[in-house]
Each structure stands twice: as structure tokens, then as C-alpha cells.
């Protein structure tokens, strides 16, 4: 027997799958956004509003949330396509499951796909799905200490949405402190405080999505 030093993370095979998927999506001109949050942070409300506001784009949603049938119906009522992904009882989506979901969905006529990941702030952060953008949602009622409790999620995200901004007066949530904590973990993170209910802050988030759309080359 010989000893082979690997020094590789256990999820190395997933990282390779994810990289391959990302390259394909870039070629096909599809922007995949991995949306992660705890349960009840307002993923579906945010998506509904975003889909309505960006009605000129062809948007699809890949639902991985465990309680997603209701969510999928809400999304389809707005005219976007939605499909339920199968996580096989797991607490996160990985690149293989995302690829299977996208194939079932079909992305030929699509500009933007939202992957609504399983609702939790731990596992989804550890698995690269192949998305070009990773966005996490933290709602005001959840508290401003979350960057301290779930640092990996903040470190891995390209953008942080602070949702339910309309609830700020009722909670002991220090917006500046939370942003400061998030930026200390990840200086490049984009922060969008917003309320999908009142529409406050939605424009900045939607402009950022538009900036990141991928030009179709074919």
C-alpha cells in the first residue's frame, strides 16, 4: 500500500461539478442566483416582488425549500416558471442536484434563474451549487447578531439582503452594527436593506441583478 497525501476538502468533487456548471451557464447566458436564508426570512415575498418588477426578463425559479409547493404556486401565479427540486432529504442543494433541476426546468429561453435553497444558514453555505451569485437574506426580526453566529454564510455570499426593513421600528436591530459585522467578515459583500412589502430599497437590489445579467452570445 502506498500513502497518497490529498489535503483536499471532502467536497472537492462537488466543487469541480459546480465550476463546470457555472461555465456552462455563462456560455448559455443564464444568470443563476443561489438564494439562501433561514426559514421565514421572506424569500418568497422577495422573489414575488422582484419577478413582478423585472417583468421584461424571463425568470425561472428552482425551489428546494422543504415547504415549497405553496411557494411554487405563488411564483407561477406571477408568470414565472417554477420547478420543485429534489434534495433527497438533504439539508442543502449541491451542484449535481442543481444541474438536474435546471435540466428539468429547461433554460433555453431564460435570463435569470433563482435557486431558492433549503431554509437554513449553515449547510447551504458549504456546498457550491454552480450559481454565479450567492445571495443571503437576513430579516430584521432575526436579529443583528447573525454574522457572529453564522460567519461562513456571510463570508461566502456576494450580497446580503436585510429584509423586512418596514419592521425596523419594532425590533432592537442595529442596522449599522449588522452591516459592519458582515463587512468585517466579507469586505466585498454588497448590502441591500429593503422591504418587499413597501418597495423601499428594491430598486438598488434589482439594478444590481441587472448589472450581473449575462449577455447571450448565441
Amino acid at each position: 500500500m502506498k500513502v497518497i497525501e490529498l489535503k483536499e476538502t471532502v467536497t472537492a468533487s462537488n466543487d469541480r461539478d459546480a465550476e463546470a456548471l457555472r461555465e456552462e451557464l455563462n456560455l448559455r447566458g443564464v444568470l443563476l442566483v443561489n438564494l439562501m436564508s433561514g426559514p421565514g426570512a421572506g424569500k418568497t415575498t422577495l422573489l414575488s416582488r422582484t419577478i413582478r418588477d423585472l417583468s421584461d426578463l424571463k425568470i425561472a425559479v428552482l425551489e428546494a425549500d422543504l415547504d415549497a409547493t405553496v411557494d411554487a404556486e405563488t411564483i407561477e401565479a406571477l408568470g414565472a416558471r417554477a420547478i420543485q427540486a429534489h434534495t433527497d432529504g438533504m439539508c442543502h442543494m449541491d451542484a449535481g442536484m442543481t444541474r438536474a433541476g435546471l435540466e428539468a426546468l429547461g433554460t433555453e429561453q431564460t435570463d435569470l434563474v433563482f435557486l431558492e435553497n433549503v431554509g437554513n444558514l449553515i449547510c447551504p453555505a458549504e456546498f457550491d451549487t454552480g450559481a454565479q451569485l450567492r445571495v443571503m437574506i437576513l430579516s430584521i426580526p432575526e436579529g443583528d447578531d447573525k454574522p457572529l453566529k453564522y460567519p461562513l454564510m456571510f463570508r461566502e455570499s456576494d450580497a446580503l439582503i436585510l429584509s423586512k426593513l418596514d419592521a425596523l421600528p419594532y425590533f432592537d436591530f442595529d442596522l449599522d452594527k449588522c452591516i459592519q459585522r458582515a463587512k468585517r467578515l466579507n469586505p466585498k459583500i454588497q448590502v441591500f436593506p429593503l422591504s418587499a412589502k413597501t418597495g423601499e430599497g428594491m430598486a438598488a437590489w434589482e439594478a444590481w441583478l441587472r448589472e450581473n445579467l449575462i449577455r447571450k452570445t448565441v
Binding site: K2, V3, L6, K7, E8, T9, V10, L148, P151
Partner: peptide, 27 residues
């Protein structure tokens, strides 16, 4: 999470959340 020296909550994990395949023995 709380520093035992100064009781601050501004603390960050340096290491200890990894899972690495160090080596394998194989034929």
C-alpha cells in the same frame, strides 16, 4: 463565543470548522 479574557463578543473563529481529506492508503 465570549472572550474569556475581556468578555467581548467581537470574536471570530480562526480554525476548527474544516473537514479535509488528509491522506489515503491505497493499492
Amino acid at each position: 463565543r465570549e472572550c474569556p479574557y475581556c468578555h467581548s463578543g467581537e470574536t471570530w473563529l480562526l480554525k476548527g470548522n474544516e473537514c479535509i481529506i488528509k491522506q489515503i492508503e491505497a493499492e
